[in-house]
Design a protein around this nucleic acid. Sequence first.
RNA 1: GUCCCGGUAGCUCAGUUGGAUAGAGCAACGGCCUUCUAAGCCGUAGGUCGGGGGUUCGAUUCCCUCUCGGGACACCA
Length: 586
Amino acid sequence: MKQAIIDVLTQALATCRSQGHLPAEVQAEITLDRTRDSKHGDFASNIALVLAKPAKTNPRALAEKIIAALPPTDAIAKVEIAGPGFINFFLKADSVFAVVKTVLAQAEQFGRSTKGAGQRIQVEFVSANPTGPLHVGHGRGAAYGSALASVLNAAGYNVYREYYVNDAGRQMDILAASVWLRYLELCGEEIVFPTNAYKGDYVWDIAATLHRGHANQCRQSWTDIVKTLPADEPQGGDKEDYIDAIIVQMKARLSAADYRKVFDLGLNVILDDIRDDLQRFSVIYDNWYSERSLTETGAVQRALDKLEENKHTYVKDGAVWFRSTDFGDEKDRVLVRDNGQTTYFASDVAYHLDKFERGFDKVVNIWGADHHGYITRVKGALQAMGIDPNRLTVLLVQFAILYQGGNKMQMSTRSGEFITLRELRKEVGSDATRFFYVMRKSEQHLDFDMDLAKSQSSDNPMYYIQYAHARVSSVLRKAEEKGWIYDQANGLANLDLLKEQHEQALLTSLARYPEVIESAAQYYEPHQVTEYLRELAQHFHTYNNAHKFLVDEVDLRNARLSLVLAVKQVVHNGLTILGVSAPESM
RNA sequence: GUCCCGGUAGCUCAGUUGGAUAGAGCAACGGCCUUCUAAGCCGUAGGUCGGGGGUUCGAUUCCCUCUCGGGACACCA
């Protein structure tokens, strides 16, 4: 409907140009908005205000010319000039009612569009290091990324969901060392656990599995090891140096195969746990991409070669640097360390090169807000390799702060004292968790009120929306009890009986849904869907309270049931995009 | 110090990407169940859109500046 009006406006402008009311060189994008006030009709355009100056006339006079040039249309009842020169469009009743027919006919497909034109878009999200269970910070990225992917899919993009597994690098070595030390404790060694090692209980579990399967095979004398180590932090040393020294010892004392065994056990146990966790959170992926594979396939080397070929690297202090300052970065970045090891950044360059080599038109990364400094260098590297950096969009997700009983709950991965996504899910449920995570703009700090998320009352927006869905089902059950059979054909033939204000408001809300999906996709803002659903639910509840659906008059009853069934469908479609269930009863 | 994000009702936040009289939910106050779920609805009150400049027909929205919060600034990942 919106597009249809934009089309006739475009034609009208063309006519104005040919008649000389508008200079041919004056161009403007037509904006058409839903009106806030029904006195202003259904849609309003500010085009006359925008073009008045270049056309050297006043807005109202230009608006008249434009209106006169509008081709006749079935859908529009009347057009008015209002205020300083707005053009207001009033839709015919028939075209307002038509949405019910469309919703019921298209069902799950209602709201889908072809705006994305099948463009291939990759969404990479969560990608947490497999060094421990997902915590509540990752949860927001998971809910947001998953909802965004669904929104893009509904808007006609060909979406590919990916998780980048950081299965290489120092943090993973620290995990392996942490597991090994716990294992040594199980073997009977008396050790002092390092400040910088992973202390969560899950490390004990992994160590126990190792001990069960391999007994004392990987056992080494802690007393011997300690002699080679510098002081740990509590003893006045450096905790980073200390843990690194342990890793060196571990690699020296275990065979390569045994080291890999400990390393992979930790990796696989945790990765399986993450997969399971996300699956229960209704977050699914098309692919899990291994960082380690980038080294193994030579992708990292290829990326480094490409940067070197294009003369964007140099050697200093024994390290290979990327001249990222040429692309707006504050300082140049190391690709290969003086010890010969490539950095995480080098893997990232290779990974992003690979993404575009795989043929995605657009790539979206969802990162924690603490990674914002990386955007410039990654985009710089893309540019340095001859790829348009604008094809990459990085969306930052701020941390969520949990509140329970009015108190802030803190977390920290390394200390082992953190709230896991799993705990949050079990506490407030998957539906409410997902809904609350996407309720706010991603780049905004989120106050996550656990008490509210758990509460089963109208204060809780998720329950409020789900209840609208359940309420329609309840009405249908009631109709059945009364022996009244819903006749959809009859209902659709009598939609013109829906004259109440509440009904008109609902019809407009329903018609807006496809526009909301497109907008949410265009701006990467799934929270537009939560806002919309709350509003739709509110219109429904208000209507429900003011009017009875199950009236004696058959025609009116069928018409109203058709309307509320359409509401139910749209609520279902919207909640599905958000990864939230739509219950039949509550 | 540099760079991001934010400041809208007592609280948590929307605000259709520059439009018409700035909205919602809590909290406060007053109403509505012999009825398809009161897990709901209606009403009242509540504002210098952080301050100050600028851009223009028009600014909560864009630009500059100041201010106050939060965060990021590795040869870690």
